[in-house]
């Protein structure tokens, strides 16, 4: 998928988006759910936020290593 479209280097954008969305979810959503007392939602958002950040980090690592 990514190797196929090497001319379009949108991988950088993906990394940026992953990290950004992870941070935003952790900073904004997790907190607001905590205040609203929605426990299940808070747990889910925490998971989603860390998931995004991890994916972003893995992609970033792989880009640094393979280039």
């Amino acid at each position: 998928m990514i190797s196929e479209s090497y001319t379009m280097s949108y991988l950088n954008y993906v990394i940026l988006l992953c990290l950004l969305s992870g941070i935003l979810i952790l900073v904004i959503d997790v907190r607001s759910f905590e205040i609203a007392g929605l426990n299940k939602e808070r747990k889910v958002s925490k998971f989603l936020g860390w998931f995004s950040i991890i994916i972003g980090s893995i992609l970033m690592m792989s880009e640094i290593i393979f280039q």
């Binding site: 759910f33 939602e41 989603l48 972003g56």
Partner: peptide, 19 residues
């Protein structure tokens, strides 16, 4: 997923939709 709020997905989906 039986959640009462949807906004946490709005940013989460962004990278996937973009790809």
């Amino acid at each position: 997923f039986r959640l009462r709020e949807h906004k946490q997905f709005s940013y989460f989906l962004l990278p996937f939709v973009f790809v």
